[in-house]
């Protein structure tokens, strides 16, 4: 038999029909203001961490909405919790809290997934 292991069938497409909403639902439960985000990018423009790294707060919000848990858990480590994003948000979203909630939920999911 030929070795076909180099073929990795996958898709870059966002598959809305099968997405992991465990993070999103948790954040919305405790910080419902996140619903009103319009992806204006004000947060990203003012972000202290984003000025030094390729960290993008606006994308954190988008990934949260699309259930990209794996990407988020790595990216979120770059936030320094200065809170400037929250100050500039035109929709008055507590972005700092959104980030905190994501971190908290990721930690919870890790515990759930690891064997006791």
């Amino acid at each position: 038999m030929n070795d076909l292991s180099f073929l990795k069938p996958a898709s870059r497409q966002i598959d809305f029909d099968n997405f992991d909403d465990r993070l999103l639902l948790y954040v919305l439960q405790y910080e419902p203001s996140f619903f009103t985000c319009i992806s204006c990018g004000g947060c990203t423009a003012t972000c202290s961490a984003g000025n030094l790294t390729n960290f993008n707060v606006r994308k954190i919000g988008l990934w949260l909405r699309r259930g990209e848990t794996e990407k988020l858990s790595e990216e979120i480590q770059k936030c320094m919790f200065c809170g400037k994003c929250t100050l500039v948000c035109p929709r008055d979203i507590n972005i700092r809290n959104v980030i905190l909630l994501i971190k908290k939920r990721i930690a919870m999911l890790k515990n759930e997934n690891s064997p006791a």
Partner: peptide, 12 residues
């Protein structure tokens, strides 16, 4: 396209 993410999107 989810233009803000720059990725194609499919939904039923």
């Amino acid at each position: 396209e989810d233009t803000l993410q720059g990725r194609p999107l499919r939904m039923t």
